[in-house]
Write a protein that binds this DNA or RNA. Structure first.
Lengths: 119, 119
DNA sequence: AGTTTGCACAACCAATTGGTTGTGAGACGT
DNA sequence: ACGTCTCACAACCAATTGGTTGTGCAAACT
């Protein structure tokens, strides 16, 4: 339905998949080929290739052609945009909370664990 | 396909829609009823209601029942988790770019708090 | 009591997503 | 030259997404 999709939406939806986040974590430790990336996952090479295309479209990774392999490299710039958006809104919301002195929502802030369950 | 979806994926995919981000921006300026939220959008009230349900499932907003209206309130906590993820990865990636990759193994070991263990 | 307002549930629809298998191109090893 | 390895394209499929209309409940207004 969304023919044209803004950058932010592309990045967020690319990050909305555990497999793709795992791929990014893998790449954070060093560049890798498609097969190296695909190896730990319980899915076909083609499926991983699709995920890489999504990440590439969101410009979270870029790829070069070295002989017959297509090494994947992280692209930091995109993540800065997302971090910027988040930070802006965090600030607004934090301000709102101080002003309104709402319910003791601050108590929930002790929970800082984000569990991931890859397949 | 993803029957069980982790918190992070829920939040990211909730943020991956411009309409929903606009709703959050609207709510940042104050609580609002469904109709107030729906007013500026060129879509039906039911569609907005669906978006609100997505945001609620991602726990980016919470709702109370006040008489016949269902005011929406922002929930900051979730965004902290996302900001945390982003920040962690930004650091790793930044480190990768202006440092020697070899020495990073130690650093990333200390920063890995969300167990993404693909297998 | 009857009407209006605020909201959500249900059924439907087209487009997208995330996976599969099948296939084939291009670079490498021998 | 031949086989192998790396990777992506195409066709297909089920499930999900993002919208619609139709409907109906519950609270509020008159």
């Amino acid at each position: 339905m969304a023919v044209i999709e803004d950058e932010l939406s592309l990045v967020f939806s690319a990050l909305a998949d555990p497999t793709r986040r795992a791929i990014l974590e893998r790449l954070a430790h060093g560049d890798a080929t498609v097969n190296q990336i695909a190896e730990p996952f319980a899915m076909t090479q083609q499926a991983v290739s699709k995920h890489l295309k999504v990440l590439e479209r969101a410009r979270l990774i870029s790829r070069t052609r070295t002989a017959q392999s297509r090494p994947c490299v992280l692209d930091t710039e995109r993540l800065d945009a997302v971090a910027g958006w988040i930070e802006r809104h965090r600030r607004i919301w934090a301000g709102r909370h101080d002003r309104l002195d709402r319910h003791l929502a601050a108590l929930q802030a002790t929970q800082r664990r984000d569990g991931e369950t890859p397949r």
